[in-house]
């Protein structure tokens, strides 16, 4: 392969990366979103209190619970109000991230 296409490919890749960032695909988006839950559910979803840990819970389970909170089918105090603040896409991201975390 000639050096010129290589450089061009690298430049294209860099452009694509810059474009992706500008479009909001932060590689740490799921992690940062999940950190909004940590005040009550513990750092990285590992709770040190009575409220359940989220670390290591299956993604589908977390998504289902959040959607039930949003629909009001699970009676609760604070979670129905908080769950309505996140988009479907954000709930998927957060749930997926917690599912990959180690439960302690």
């Amino acid at each position: 392969m000639h050096p010129i296409p290589l450089v061009a490919a690298a430049a294209l890749a860099a452009l694509a990366a810059a474009h992706a960032t500008a479009q909001g695909s932060d590689p740490n988006l799921a992690r940062s979103l999940a950190a909004t839950c940590a005040n009550c559910h513990g750092t990285n979803g590992v709770s040190v209190g009575e409220v359940p840990s989220l670390a290591g819970r299956p993604k589908d389970e977390i998504v289902r619970k959040m959607q039930d909170f949003r629909k009001g089918t699970t009676p609760a105090t604070i979670m129905p109000q908080l769950a309505k603040g996140y988009t479907d896409e954000q709930i998927e991201l957060v749930a997926g991230w917690f599912a990959t975390q180690k439960a302690k």
Binding site: V48, G49, I78, A83
Partner: peptide, 22 residues
């Protein structure tokens, strides 16, 4: 989104202490 409690409760008291710990 967001809001307040419908009334004071002991369950939210437990959640409040949990909040502090976490």
């Amino acid at each position: 989104s967001g809001g307040v409690s419908s009334a004071m409760s002991e369950i939210e008291g437990r959640y409040a202490f949990n909040w502090a710990k976490n």
